[in-house]
Structure formats: structure tokens, C-alpha cells
Amino acid sequence: MEVNRRTQADRTAATRTALIGAARALFAEDGFSAVGTQTIVAKAGVTRGALYHQFADKAELFVAVFEQVEEEVMAAVATAVADAAADGPIEALEVGAAAWLELCADPQVHRIVLIEAPVVLGWEQWREAGQRHALGMVEALIAEAVSSGAVAEQPVRPLAHVMIGALDEAAMYVARSPEPGKARAEMLDVTRRLIRAMTIE
């Protein structure tokens, strides 16, 4: 009986993985509104019934895709910061901001996180998700900067919210630019200046 339950759980997990993977590729290529559920299940190799067993509707499936992409992005940013062995929290923030803007060049991140998610989820839910994934990292680095004396003593959370908002807007600017390479270079300079502006001279 235990083996049967485990096998069923494995099948369920495999179905969910297939649906998220198929939807992710399709949403990134064509956008949420242009992709029908029949196209998703055909690509995933499952039935419509299997889709609706896993997700209430296409919007709920999109949320799962979005969350997966967001988690991968934050893991990549964290890895970039760790690998850089930054000289203090300010430099770590600069590395993280650069990694974020670079990751936004990925078509899946660009389309799903920056273009589709604000429309499908609504602005408030989209912002809440971004803050949930990024707030902890940014807040911890700013708190370290304040503690070390690199940044003036002040409430950390409001400053972290402002920084996240600025980085999201920077990414949106790059994503919507007809010259993304040029826009990214410009925004890297702007975000670096913004981060450095927090420091005590």
C-alpha cells in the first residue's frame, strides 16, 4: 500500500512538473493570453483533466510558473553575490543589482516576470511576490551596511522597499527598451550610483 501511495505521489509530481514546464515555455514565447489550455496539455503530454486536477485554472498555473522563475532568479542572484566574494554589503548590493539586470535579459524572465506577471497577477500581487522573494536579501545587506557604519543609522525596511522598487523599475526600463543592451548599461550605472548614494562619505 505504501508503495502504491508513493507511486501515485510520484505520478502527481511528474504531471505537475510537466504542466509547469510546458506552460513556462509557452507563456515565455507567446504570452499568457495567447496560450490556450489545450495547447499546454498537448505540450505537456497530459489530459485537460490532469491540468484541472492540479490547478484551478490557467491563471493558477501561471502563478506556479511565475513562482518557479522568481525562485530561480533569486537563487541565481544569491549565487552571483556569493561567488563575487564582495568587499562588504554595498559591493554585494551592486553585484546583486547587476546580476538582476543581466538575468532580465533571459526571454523567460523578461516575458514572464516583467511583462506578463503584472497583467495576470495584478500590480499589487506582483509587487508583493517580488518583495517576498527579494526583500530578505536586500534588507539583510542594508542592515549589514548600517551596522558596519557604511550607511547612516536609519530604519532598514523602508530603505529596502525603496531599493527593490528602484531595481524593479530599472528592469522594466531595460525590458521595454528597443535597445536593451544600451539600456542595461545605462541602468547598471544608475543603480550603482543609487547604491553608492546611501553610503556615508
Rank of each mutant, 00 (worst) to 15 (best):
S33K: 14
T47F: 07
A59S: 10
D30H: 10
G31Y: 13
F66R: 13
T37P: 12
T37I: 08
E72Q: 14
L51A: 11
T39M: 11
L61C: 05
K58H: 00
V65S: 02
V46C: 09
F62S: 00
A59W: 01
A42L: 12
L61R: 00
F62Q: 00
I40W: 05
E70V: 10
V63F: 05
K58I: 02
G49S: 02
Y52K: 06
D57L: 06
A50G: 03
A50V: 04
V65Y: 01
V35M: 12
K58T: 01
G36R: 10
Y52R: 03
E67F: 07
D57C: 06
E70T: 09
G45H: 02
V46G: 09
Q38K: 15
E71M: 14
T37S: 12
E70Q: 09
A42Y: 10
E60Q: 03
I40Q: 07
A42M: 10
F55P: 08
E72F: 11
E71W: 14
A34P: 06
L61W: 00
A59N: 12
D57P: 03
G49V: 01
T37C: 11
G45Y: 02
K58P: 04
G36W: 09
K43E: 07
K43Y: 12
D57R: 03
I40D: 04
T39Q: 09
F66M: 08
T47S: 13
E70G: 08
A64R: 00
E72W: 11
G31F: 15
R48C: 11
T47C: 10
E71H: 12
T39E: 12
V73S: 13
D57V: 02
F62V: 05
I40T: 09
Q54F: 00
E70D: 10
Q54K: 11
Q68A: 15
T39H: 07
H53R: 09
E60N: 02
H53G: 09
T37Q: 13
I40R: 14
L61H: 01
G36C: 08
V69H: 05
H53F: 03
E71P: 11
S33R: 14
Q54M: 07
Q38N: 14
E70Y: 02
